[in-house]
Amino acid sequence: MSTSTAAIVAGEGVAAAPAGRRPRPPRRSSTQGSRLAPLWLLSPAGIVLLALIVAPIIFLIYTSFTDYNQRTLFTGEYNAVGFDQYVKILTDPQFWQSTVLTLFFTAALVLGSLVIGVGVSNLMTKLGTVMRYIVTIVLIFAWGMPNVASAQVWNWLFQPGYGVINWIITQLRVFGNQTDLSWWNSTPLALINIWMLVVWQAVPFIALTTYAAQTQVDGSLIEAARIDGAGEWRIYFSVVLNYLKPTILLITILSIIWDFNVFNQIWLTTQGGPDNGTATLGIFGYLTAFNQFRVGTGAAIAVVTTFMLMIISGFYIRSLLRSGEDL
């Protein structure tokens, strides 16, 4: 959630910046005070970011080259072990399993939420005012739910024995009596379950953003296509989606970053289980560092994960810079 709101605000900043309206440096009346002003203004933020983000990251990298473990937390003793931790994780089948899981699960989440979100956006353009308002409110409810609370709700919805979803599945009379079906005891079911939870909360942002962009589509383009004899689907795929391309691209990159980092929804439903079946890299790193207290190994996992994510978010930053934004 935190990143999701962050990007919204960042996007807003982008939109709000009128081209060419830049504060010019005061040339004549430049006193000592005003020249040093940016330095003074930036230093509190600089100190905080250095102390609480940059230094910890350096310490993380440092820790990944040591055998920091449970004993160290009490005695403060640890040894430098060079690349041992990296060798250890790169030869650990569980690490590769987590990597593959993270990549596939991220892809499944991004694809699912994009298809549904963009579909809902298109649906909204075809609705009357009242129905569109209802859909918007429903979306905001799903979006606004803190994921800690929604994970609790999920645990209750899918509870074996009395969960309402199992009851509904049983009533369908297609799958037999599934009242006691346990969603968290099998990896595929657990993944489907978490997928639904994440997608449920990811769709509103995508649908509302895409919808806002879709309302800007030039009506005359659609009209022209219609006169040329294009069907509704053809118009949607050739004209509307083409117009929405930049929006969808941005949403895709943001979704990849967010879905790659999904943590709470997994931790609060399965804790990575059954048998590490839902342990994505984030969960695997957390379990290694804080449940087994192999902090050095956990740090190495976090470094590798950060590296992977940096490659992905590099695309986002590049595309933001290329869009001509004057930072």
């Binding site: 993380l60 820790t63 920091y68 790193g285």
Partner: peptide
Amino acid sequence: MVLILAVQMLPGTALLIPQFLI
């Protein structure tokens, strides 16, 4: 500005582990 943006994208555990230790 770019650094501030990049920092926002760090995975949770990458900051959690060292902050906990420090």
